[in-house]
Amino acid sequence: MITIALYITIAMVVLATVLNVYRLIKGPDAPDRVLALDTLYINAIALIVLLGITLGTRLYLESALLIAVMGFVGTVAMAKYLKRGSVID
């Protein structure tokens, strides 16, 4: 049963990723694209966790944690760049 639920969930998350990429390409403004990238990294975390369950290993969780940290820093840096024209001020 878990296997079926897992495949359905992976399909839903992949569909979500496709919708995010649509927003990333369409824009229309820079903040929309930053928001799409922000959502994309959160979906990447979901996909990595699902991959870990599929393969029955916990090794990948460390990378999910790293993506969570780095993705947040990336979003803040890009938003700051849009606001000020520089990342560090």
């Binding site: 839903m12 979500a16 995010n20 649509y22 928001l35 959502t39």
Partner: peptide, 10 residues
Amino acid sequence: FTLVGAIGLA
């Protein structure tokens, strides 16, 4: 919920 969030975004 992940899918709903993405639909909302789109």
